[in-house]
Nucleic acid binder design. Sequence first.
DNA 1: CTGATAACATCAGGCGCCTGATATAATGTA
DNA 2: TACATTATATCAGGCGCCTGATGTTATCAG
Lengths: 142, 142
Amino acid sequence: MTKDMTPLLGYRLKLAQHALHRRLEAALKPLGLNPAQYAVLAELNARPDQTNADLAERAFITPQSMQGVLAKLEDSRLVERRQDVRHGRRQLARLTPEGHVKAEAANAEVMRVEEVLEAAVRPDAIQDALDLMERLHSAMCR
Amino acid sequence: MTKDMTPLLGYRLKLAQHALHRRLEAALKPLGLNPAQYAVLAELNARPDQTNADLAERAFITPQSMQGVLAKLEDSRLVERRQDVRHGRRQLARLTPEGHVKAEAANAEVMRVEEVLEAAVRPDAIQDALDLMERLHSAMCR
DNA sequence: CTGATAACATCAGGCGCCTGATATAATGTA
DNA sequence: TACATTATATCAGGCGCCTGATGTTATCAG
């Protein structure tokens, strides 16, 4: 007989991340963004002029999926794409001024969630928690 | 300027869970199951005769989504649903004999992944890790 | 008993991410 | 130069989960 799932690390990891995801969705919804769109805005804010392929890799989704994300951000005039002068195929994405404002606002919301998350951990244990997540991540990628 | 996401607990939580999910998908694929289907088989193995609504709640998805999961499991003859004798509307789901075999096989695969996950943590720190996940989950649900 | 409310199953449509296929430009190699 | 390989963007279709709407059955209040 299969036992109760509750004491499994994988199960609890899933639960925690699922709740976080819902929370982020709720926090970003008033801004008209979803977590994937936020991730792109934040990434382009930190490093402008990246290609669709670059952004996809950093966000851990496929280029095909990122295509859809970028298309919507372009429709919303938060991101613009230009032909790379040196390459005929590459298109470099960057934030519009409006996109920059939106990115900052979204980041504030996300940081608010992050603070709630960190408040659940003893201050001196946050680094341990970060290390734990990294170890779990590495173990699953091997 | 938005900073690097790497040191954020939320970001690393997402990364770890994402990798776990991919790993589970890969482990279950040879059995013809996805993580959601596995969750239902495991749940019905532990507690037979649950309704669609019950299963949805335990799996943290909507009844509408669980409907699709159950329909596929029925098509695969791993689960069967019968009218509840006392209620005209409720349908109670349970494993078929074939479903029971599949559930056990899937559970073995999932436990193998769980072992890899736990191996990434010092043995005396597993309970701390479980507690951490629970605190993060609770913090996000409030 | 009657009518309102809640629980349950289910259909329809949308969104996000996936895989597979295709087209084009850049790059490496004979 | 010519050709194969790689990188990039993009279209098409599938799958899983979502919200909204609908119909049916239990349950409860009067």
